[in-house]
């Protein structure tokens, strides 16, 4: 019984991990992300370094000028803009590959439960994402640390890495769900729409709304938008989860008065991931009927 349940999971995990790690398109996407992340880290490190050299009062400085922690917090803010490329490419490539191999109809003729096949696939793909993302996130943090010449808060580094993995998981699942419903060709365009909504539209809406109701100061020291109530856009979820670990003097979101609110973001992330995973497992059996 245990083998019947666990071995399909392991089978898909290993197949999708191996298949993704050796993919050329993935390699190109990872190279792009690595270049963009390290370049941003270098720019932010430079800004922090120059601010330190100027001897200005830290309280008057922008977030990214406030030492290594400030630079890393700012980098975390930019990750939702550049990171989604990898999970979206991976989801599309994986679904295309499965379709061309005629894998699903054959897999569905096996006694393994669909949810274990879906779980193994998602776990394998997440592992494939973690392979480049963890070292890259650490490399960016330590590049900033090396440039600025001061240690980065380890909890902040852990939140940065964890937040990036959660964000990647969200976009991966979204890509898998879109691709399963409409075909692999739709993964890119539909994910791009979510990316636009989660970044440009969300930010624009927030700034306009905030200016109208005077919810945040838009002058002086820059305070990034609040993420606590933003459990719909993936950027909000990423910022919310990272912000919980940012030292108070570097807070880049408005800290909520209600101490339960940060937990809402964590639960919202979990709900999104579980919800999309369940949806994907259900949809898998529908693919050949399309």
């Amino acid at each position: 019984m245990f083998a019947r349940v666990s071995r399909p999971l392991v089978g898909f995990f290993l197949k999708d991990l191996k298949g993704s790690v050796f993919s050329t398109r993935m390699a190109a996407a990872i190279a792009f992300l690595a270049a963009a992340t390290l370049f941003l880290a270098w720019l932010l490190g430079q800004a922090a370094l120059q601010a330190a050299a100027s001897g200005a009062d830290p309280a008057t400085l922008q977030l990214w000028q406030r030492g290594a922690d400030g630079a890393l917090s700012t980098l975390a803010f930019f990750m939702p803009v550049i990171l989604p490329l990898i999970p979206v490419v991976l989801a599309r490539e994986n679904l295309e590959s499965d379709a061309s191999a005629g894998l699903l109809p054959l897999a569905l003729s096996k006694p393994a439960p669909n949810q274990f096949m879906a779980g193994g696939k998602v776990a394998g793909l997440l592992a494939a994402l973690a392979v480049p993302l963890i070292p890259l996130s650490l490399a960016a943090a330590f590049l900033i640390q090396a440039m600025v010449g001061e240690a980065v808060d380890l909890l902040l580094v852990a939140a940065f890495v964890g937040g990036n993995l959660v964000l990647a998981a969200l976009y991966l699942l979204l890509g898998l769900v879109f691709g399963t419903i409409l075909g692999p060709g739709f993964v890119g365009p539909l994910s791009a729409l979510v990316w636009l909504g989660s970044n440009l539209l969300r930010t624009t809406a927030f700034v306009l709304l905030a200016a109208l109701i005077g919810a945040i100061r838009l002058e002086g020291i820059l305070t990034f938008e609040s993420a606590w109530f933003d459990v719909v856009s993936f950027t909000g979820l990423h910022q919310g989860i990272t912000a919980a670990f940012v030292p108070a003097h570097l807070m880049f979101v408005i800290w909520p008065a209600d101490p339960l609110l940060p937990q809402v973001v964590v639960w919202a992330n979990a709900a999104w991931i579980v919800g999309l995973l369940v949806l994907f497992a259900v949809l898998i059996a529908k693919v050949p009927n399309r």
Binding site: A3, R4, R7, P8, V10, G11, K15
Partner: peptide, 12 residues
């Protein structure tokens, strides 16, 4: 075949 053996639920 190993992949399909796992999906089929054959023991290791």
């Amino acid at each position: 075949l190993r992949f399909w053996a796992r999906i089929t639920g054959l023991s290791g």
